[in-house]
Design a binder for these strands. Sequence first.
DNA 1: GGAACGATCTGC
DNA 2: CAGATCGTTCCC
Length: 197
Amino acid sequence: MMGMSDLDRWVSTRELRDVTRRDLEGDAPAVAPWLLNKVLIVGACAGRIIEVEAYTQNDPASHTFGGQTKRNAVMFGPAGLLYVYFTYGMHYCANVVTGSRGVGEAVLLRAVQPLCGVALMSERRSGRAALADGPAKLCQAFGIGRSDDGRDLCAPSTDHERPFRIVDDSTPPPSTPQVGQRIGITKAVDVPWRWRL
DNA sequence: GGAACGATCTGC
DNA sequence: CAGATCGTTCCC
């Protein structure tokens, strides 16, 4: 018999508000720190966003710097889409698209604090202690993959089996987040567009 | 057609 | 600190 999941319990104890497309639309460097403390929900897993990076169109480190391609097309879509890319031959990373249609901007989700579905995350992470403290680990823990590229985080939830969105549980973004250089890039390395709790 | 290179992670 | 591992991009 199906018991109440930890997500059900967690949701019922907090006032959750869907983050709207309008909330997400804007320059990635402005939206990125605002996303801190928001909650990512994918299926039975939820986690509080604790580290992000911004990427803009005229940013040499961004996938969109060279213009639109098949791979980065979602980044040019409307704010609120999820841009998922495959890298290093084995990892996926997930971004929230922030620019309006035609503008290639997004915020990379680098780390979340697991809130729900911890057992499932642990299983997907092969029992390792680190569940979602890196962009590829986060995707593995949440089961985010290639087929999620272009999913709409702001559309009304149609898939009740696998909700897929970002919500505000009334925890405000930190007033003084850590700010620093982005990780793992070789261009525009001095741009301080990484934010952390 | 081919080569170089990753917005990373892991184990040594 | 180097290896894994393959899609994407860019150059010839």
